[in-house]
Design a protein around this nucleic acid. Structure first.
Lengths: 187, 187
DNA sequence: TAGATTGTTAATCGATTAACAATC
DNA sequence: TAGATTGTTAATCGATTAACAATC
């Protein structure tokens, strides 16, 4: 779309993505018939439909628990808003951080987090704390009523079924890197 | 292992992980017979073998390109060293950052990066820059002779076949969170 | 020896690919 | 109308699961 292309076939998508044309047609068709025989797919329409499938048209309100480097990095991350998430506050227990601002987002005392979440109808809790406090923060988020958790701590959170958890497993990513480095080296 | 358990069966591993006992035996067996009939698996031995498979026993030297919040967060990340990676330096083009230290790791001028990599036999380049400069940094890493790249920028890098690239796709992780939030909500 | 549990083969299942009729 | 390309069914492939003989 950025390149000004407004029509694309499953075969061209195949070249771009590495998936077979057959699979692209099969998969897209599971969500609806976005293409047109003899023509292909309209790029702008397809982009819009994919956005709708992923729910990028909905705006969610989020807070970050853990205002260290990682929490601050995420508060600064632009791609976050592109996906429809808006960070309203960071929370930490470190008094040196409380009161500071990242861009225009204030760091608040984690003791006030439940209250803030309830008052502002926060949908998403983001955990960027060390492993040790992650489960406790998750419990707090659930109690306060968030719908989902984006978890960066290297631990599997236990939450009720109705809460959506998405883990970013940096340690496993490193394991994969390590594995393939070794494999390549052994050839 | 942390819990002092020193023997475990595929069935117990199944309960812990959610994979079927059959698959656990099948998969482990692809890498060698680590178990013993009638006994199960020795936890410490299994842990060691998995570490060897993943290459966690090898130590790699790494540098980080991009000393913003994300770069600093990673430089501070302890799990990193557990996987056998050691960060020797950060690099940035921002004069305000150059010369600063994260823990005891110095931030250097990105113009000196190639030289540093060659002199110190760096194995891994980590990209924590914005999308715009990611490919250029990857090219520099390749030219300087790294074996692998850990990429946090939301873009697909083009590198020669002999270079291992592991991407951390934060934007896709957000898409997944968004998708399941929507799906749950629609039920 | 009896019981337990692996390693491994065979059966099943689901996902991917191929093919082609429908149709723009 | 002819050409192109989807939507969709059928064929293939590979991965998961079940079963059980081997053996600790």
């Amino acid at each position: 779309m950025d390149k000004g292309i407004n029509r694309i076939s499953s075969q061209e998508l195949s070249k771009l993505t590495g998936f077979t044309a057959s699979q692209i047609r099969q998969d897209l068709n599971n969500f609806g018939g976005f293409g047109q025989q003899g023509y292909g797919y309209n790029v702008e329409e397809l982009h819009g439909e994919l956005g709708k499938i992923l729910g990028l048209d909905t705006i969610y309100k989020a807070v970050i628990a853990g205002a260290g480097n990682l929490g601050q990095a995420i508060a600064n991350y632009k791609g976050f808003e592109d996906a429809g998430f808006k960070v309203l506050s960071l929370f930490d227990k470190n008094p040196k951080l409380i009161g500071l601002r990242i861009r225009d987002i204030e760091i608040r005392d984690v003791d006030n987090m439940v209250e803030f979440i309830k008052e502002n109808d926060i949908d998403i809790g983001i955990i960027t704390s060390p492993r040790e406090s992650a489960q406790e923060l998750a419990d707090t988020f659930v109690k306060a009523g968030v719908k989902g958790i984006w978890n960066f701590a290297p631990t599997d959170l236990e939450v009720p079924d109705h809460i959506v958890v998405e883990n970013v497993r940096l340690n496993e990513s490193l394991f994969i890197l390590s594995y393939f480095l070794k494999e390549k080296h052994d050839e």
